[in-house]
Design a protein around this nucleic acid. Sequence first.
DNA 1: CGATGCCTGCCC
DNA 2: GGGCAGGCATCG
Length: 281
Amino acid sequence: MPELPEVENVRLSLLPLIQGKTITAIGTNWEKILTGGLAHFQQTLVGHTVTGLDRRGKYLLFRFDHGVTMVSHLRMEGKYQVVPYPTVPFGRFAHVWFTFSDDSQLRYHDMRKFGRMQLIATGQEYLVSGLSSLGPEPTPAQFDLAAFAAKLKARKAPIKSVLLDQTVVAGVGNIYADETLWQARVNPQQPACTLKKTEIAALHDAIIAVLAQSIQLGGTSVHTFVDATGARGGFQDRLHVYERQGEPCDRCGTDIVKIKVGQRGTHYCPKCQPLRKRVIR
DNA sequence: CGATGCCTGCCC
DNA sequence: GGGCAGGCATCG
C-alpha cells in the first residue's frame, strides 16, 4: 500500500479518532504482526492512553502516556480503522484489534500480513531496525541537496533503485520514484553516480514537490489505499507514468513504457527521460 | 550489492 | 498455473 503521502494521511485521519483513548484489551489472529508477541503488547499497553501519533518516513509512531511508543509499518496492504463498538462485524482481514475504554475499537487490517508493530521506549526509536538508518524527510528543511548529491555519487546502481533505498531519502516508494524521475526528466536506469548536478537538483526538488502535493490531495489510491476513515486519495488522477504504460506522455505524447528495474515494475517516457549511455572513447 | 521470503488476491 | 502487486528484512 502506502508510501509517505499515504502514511501521512493515515496519521492525519487516525489521530483524532484515538487521541486520549485508553486501551482495555488487545487481540490478534496473526501474532507474527506483533513483534515480541501478544502478551508483551497486552502487558505493556493495557491501561494506557494514546497521547499522540507521529510519522517518520513510512513508519507510524503511536505515543502512549507512560513513555512507550508503538512503531507500526503498514508495508504493502496495512490499514487502520476505528469502529464504535467491538460488536461491529470483523472483516476477513482484521488481524489486530485494540479495544478502548469508551467501547470503540482500533482495528488493523492487512490482506498480506506483511505489516509489523513493535514497542520501544519513546526516544529510543532509533533502535528500531529501519528507523535507525532512515534518511531525511523529503522537506526543504530536512532534505539537504549537497548530502543527497554525495549519496548519489557513491552509488553505481540505477537511480530508481537508489530512490527506493530508505537511507537515501525517507518515504519514496515505487509510485513516487517513477513520478519524481519523470518530473525531473531522469531515466530510471541511469546509474546514480552519473547524474549531472542539474539533474540531481531537479530530482531533489521533484521529490519535495510531488510528495507534498500528494499529501495535500490525500495520497494515491491506485490499488486499495484508504485512510483511517475509509476515504480514497486523489493523487491517482495526477500520475504521469505509474501504471500508464501504452498511454501518451503528458509532455511529449510518446507512449509510456514499462520495464523492470531491480525487480520492480518501472514506468517512464523514453523520449523525455532518455538513458545517457556512457560515451566509449 | 542483487536475490529471496513473507502473504493473499487478482488478472491474464 | 504463472506472474504481478504502494515494502522491507535477511540472507549470499
